[in-house]
Nucleic acid binder design. Sequence first.
DNA 1: CTGTTAGCGCTTTCAT
DNA 2: ATGAAAGCGCTAACAG
Lengths: 344, 344
Amino acid sequence: MSNDETVAAGRTEALDERAGRRPTIYDIAQLVGLNPSTVSRALNKPGRTNAATEERIRAAAAELGYRVNPMARALPTGMTGTFAIVLPDITNPVHFDLIRGAEQVARTNGRTLIVSETEGSAEIELETIETLQSSVDGLLVVASRLTDDELAPLARSKPIVAANHASQSLPSVIPDLAMGLRQAMDHVHELGHRSVAYLGLSGLQMGRTRWDLTLDLATSRDISLVEIAVNAPSIDAGADALRRVRASGVTAVLAYNDLVAHGLLRAARNAGITIPDAFSVIGFDDIFSAELAAPSLTTLRSPLREIGTRAMQTLLDSDLNRVPSRVILPLDLVIRDSTAAPSR
Amino acid sequence: MSNDETVAAGRTEALDERAGRRPTIYDIAQLVGLNPSTVSRALNKPGRTNAATEERIRAAAAELGYRVNPMARALPTGMTGTFAIVLPDITNPVHFDLIRGAEQVARTNGRTLIVSETEGSAEIELETIETLQSSVDGLLVVASRLTDDELAPLARSKPIVAANHASQSLPSVIPDLAMGLRQAMDHVHELGHRSVAYLGLSGLQMGRTRWDLTLDLATSRDISLVEIAVNAPSIDAGADALRRVRASGVTAVLAYNDLVAHGLLRAARNAGITIPDAFSVIGFDDIFSAELAAPSLTTLRSPLREIGTRAMQTLLDSDLNRVPSRVILPLDLVIRDSTAAPSR
DNA sequence: CTGTTAGCGCTTTCAT
DNA sequence: ATGAAAGCGCTAACAG
């Protein structure tokens, strides 16, 4: 009889039909002779279906190499299983550790991480967040260029947590600046420095706070403080500042971050200036290159990775209408070779 | 009459109904009194709809703050507008520039980038790719731990391009190893070195190729070459190798990458050994810290960023059934202070 | 040029 | 415990 042939043809046809296509719960349902909704239940709500059928379904799923389609799931549930981290500049090593921490937590929780860069522009940041919002379950904004007033309304549709910068309206995870700066100031004070420069990005919110704190600490220690502006948190910007540092006559400088400090070190070396003889340098963050530099860099170690993990954790169990939490992580001074007693 | 009231009530109701919810094309359609499909057309296929209505629709969309839902779009089209980059270790600075390049190209093309780490495990990599596959339009695999045979079938459902490592079956973007290594060998040879160590990861495919190339180059220059294995492409692994390097009696070493070289430099410094007096060191990649190190590192500069951009471009205009392209980018030796003539 | 209709893959009531 | 049916937001024939 041609019965066999028909069956065989039917099978081949079915296989052909889904050639290339990834199997769906319909394919599984057909294979085990059940309804797709049962397959869905079996796969996602263990226990809410007969143990034996659940087994059959799982077996069929495995056989077909089935993977759930997150997009299709996102539509009815509104849950995408992915989070986004948006930051000004992927280049900055500071952000790497932070991304790494966030990614690790996301991954171990079965979530996916989208990384997006804003080039330090507020408009791009706004645009990015709005675009991403329907694709994610939440956002991590790092060193945001947006104001609290701009961020707050955005956070009403999907949770947003601020990482590495404070926020009134958002949950945030930040390093304890006051603690760190106090240690830095104590250190230079004990070494005998009385004239210090702060190499900062005056434009940013975090920059301002840091300056204010530093000024208070300096004043109370009878240290004179000058501000020298750098226009970017980068190596080159730090190198550019060398002339002004020298001109200022200070004996120690607190750099906005390690990149800026690296730039200063590099420029000094190229100019034949020896550090810490000419002046001491303290960085911020303790990126991996800090200890490799010549001289190795005294710096405030920011728990970047932990900031990333804590921020992602906060995001994972965040509840849209709950009072914003604030996590403040300790900051420690790592003393290396770029600081010493002033030579004059 | 209560007509006004009714209308007003209706309006408020409609507004209430979509409170919190992001507006959809249905909301726009309702607002302008047209069919959702017309809205879809107006927004996506400019020209295929009456100019006036298109304008009205765009205005309404803007008024409501409409944003397309990529998930919803992905379902019927199969296009998600996002790509994934999967790599062994986000920590590795080498990957940063690569990510940065890829992200930049993705973003300027309106695409989103998912970053995923595999911890250098082949199983995790496989799992990751399979999971991600339905969420993306293509994958970028960096320094894959999977074999060509494993990768090839995966690449049948969504395009995959290999970055920074060669592949037979996949389009790939790689640095010109032969060119780079030749320069490195010429450099040490000219300096007078005749006994060199290669500090490599013997497990990896790329590691093997590099070793083979290096061996050929050494042999033809009458340089004796020994292999010293490091178990990870990391600073610590490099530091661990110091004893073996010293024991080998070589006068120059080619490190697997800059991290390994950094580790060696650091260990040497800690042990009071001066480089390049004791032995010369050549790194690989030219990550940003290479020039900051003490001594600054002679290294093969890999066009990491360009590898990232070219790979993403390849992915963007990749066609599932086309012969895999291969882009080979030049590699240059950057001579700094970690290499010098042998002192013995 | 615009409307109708069906469907992408999955979840979720509501029945049975 | 399982099935039937509707719907998430959008696109894509196909009609008109």
